[in-house]
Design a binder for these strands. Structure first.
Length: 453
RNA sequence: GAGAUUGUAGCUCAGUAGGUUAGAGCGUCGGAUUGUGGUUCCGAAGGUCGCGGGUUCGAGCCCCGUCUUUCUCCCCA
């Protein structure tokens, strides 16, 4: 007999955690629905042909792969065994766990394109799995909450994403956050202007670290990766505007020779104007050149949400991808979406103690009794309470009152009804307020009226 | 995937230079009032010292491997 244990990077969620997680899920779901998004669920398991090659080389390694059923090694030759096991994974594994919700969504859109009315807006709240090394705020199984629109390139979608993020975070009680926005076209333009066309990948990886390692180290890394000193010198204006909130004019003069960049700046500015049009009070959005996440498929806007004064990675990321369904043979469908990480939001709300206090209360009233007769009498009352819509339970065993009250106390049940011989005779039950200790003699109808107030 | 770090009762941790039966607090269970909780008092249960090897007369403590925790790189929610 061995001690049970959890798989690395996974967690159980006990009742009190689930209540809090549900609060987050409900808030997100409600907001997504309010913006006209429809629910979708896809399988945890996907064919590897769907998942592989969508997240870069790194991503392929981080995919959890499922061994084929039966004699999974049957197809292997002696020569295969001599190689690195990674070389023959395709021979022993055909399925894997989903890595994010965007690729399965793209697959769904392609497979159902005939029946979907475009633009199609869906939201999806499901777990995803990644085989990377766990750290704080980073798990191997975690939930993502995605909302995406496909079939339109209207920038209204981008603006609505900004609105949703503000709505969700504020409803959760978070106030000190920043919605960072960038545009892939601007990054492309920068690479162009400094004479490093096609190098934007390397460029982005480097400048993404700007706030972390500083200007000097970023430049050092670029040189190391083969950027010319001239190119690096051309980046000078970038460091100047890294701290500005919406430096569109500066960007225009710096990147005036790049049509792509100008297009990107136009797009950004329109998003700003649209959000203004919504009349959002106190917008917490900020342009951030260094934002270069999800490079593999974003083509327009790039989003990320940082919670200020909390040491944790971003709690949300997203952007526009013009050709996601292209890899499944359907080109020309533009999409834009956002993904929120519930597990990190949980950690943030916990750290800032922002969870509402009354969330822990699941049972509103408990019946306690002293013997079989009282318990039987209580069944009817219990049913009445539940019929009236009150969460109610009865202590199952005829044990000492002390134990029963102790149970109610620890479960934070706010009211207890005592049933004994006196109560059964008079028909007046004792309602005890567990917070104040106050007791009242009431009929079951009066109790319901009292609790429903 | 690379480097570092952690692992002792349900939880948080002690455990002295390797030496007899491994400790505390909290929690759990029972009792102090056979109809009154959150306070107090008494008592009890609970540990293959992550797991597997090795060194030693002797290992919780030293060595190796493995799993796990946390952190940095990488990448990301």
């Amino acid at each position: 007999m061995s001690k049970p244990s959890l798989a690395r990077g996974t967690r159980d969620f006990g009742p009190e955690q689930m209540v809090k997680r549900t609060f987050i899920f409900d808030t997100i779901r409600r907001t997504f629905q309010r913006f006209g998004f429809q629910p979708l669920e896809t399988p945890a398991i996907e064919n590897l042909s769907v998942l592989m090659g969508k997240y870069g080389e790194e991503g392929d390694q981080l995919l959890f792969k499922i061994l084929n059923s039966g004699d999974y090694a049957a197809k292997l030759t002696e020569a295969d065994w001599q190689q690195d096991a990674r070389q023959f994974t395709t021979k022993i594994s055909e399925k894997g766990l989903r890595y994010d919700l965007t690729v399965p969504f793209a697959r769904y859109v392609v497979m159902n394109r005939g029946t979907l009315s475009m633009p199609f807006k869906r939201y999806q709240l499901q777990p995803v799995w990644r085989a990377d090394r766990p750290q704080k705020g980073r798990y191997r199984e975690f939930y993502q909450c995605d909302a995406d629109v496909v079939g339109t390139s209207s920038l209204l979608c981008e603006a609505e994403i900004v609105m949703m993020l503000h709505g969700i975070l504020r409803e959760l009680g978070l106030t000190d956050f920043t919605v960072k926005i960038n545009n892939r076209k601007i990054l492309t333009g920068i690479a162009e202007v400094i004479g490093a066309q096609g190098q934007e990948g390397t460029l982005c990886v480097a400048i993404d670290k700007l706030d972390k390692i500083g200007k000097e180290k970023v430049l050092a890394e670029l040189i190391e990766r083969g950027f010319s000193p001239e190119s690096c010198a051309g980046l000078e204006p970038l460091f100047a505007l890294a701290s500005e909130q919406a430096p569109f004019a500066e960007l225009r003069s710096w990147l005036a020779t790049s049509d792509v960049a100008l297009k990107g700046i136009d797009e950004l500015e329109e998003v700003w104007q649209l959000v203004e049009g919504f009349g959002l009070e106190n917008p917490q959005m900020q342009f951030d050149v260094t934002l270069a996440r999800g490079l593999s498929y974003y083509t327009g806007a790039i989003f990320e949400v940082k919670v200020n004064n909390v040491q944790i990675g971003s709690i949300s990321g997203g952007g526009r991808y013009d050709n996601l369904t292209g890899t499944f043979g359907v080109p020309g469908l533009s999409g834009v979406g956002i993904s929120l990480g519930v597990d990190r939001i949980y950690d943030v709300l916990e750290e800032l103690s922002l969870f509402p206090d009354d969330q822990a209360i699941t049972t509103r009233v408990m019946l306690s009794h002293f013997d079989a007769a009282a318990a039987r009498y209580g069944l009817k009352v219990l049913h009445q309470l539940r019929q009236a819509g009150l969460n109610a339970e009865m202590y199952p065993d005829a044990v000492k009152l002390k134990k029963q009250l102790d149970y109610a106390d620890r479960k934070r049940i706010p009211y207890v009804v005592l049933i004994g011989s006196e109560e059964m005779q008079s028909g007046k039950l004792t309602l005890k307020n567990m917070q104040t200790g106050e007791q009242k003699s009431l009929t079951s109808e009066e109790i319901i009226a009292e609790l429903k107030r």
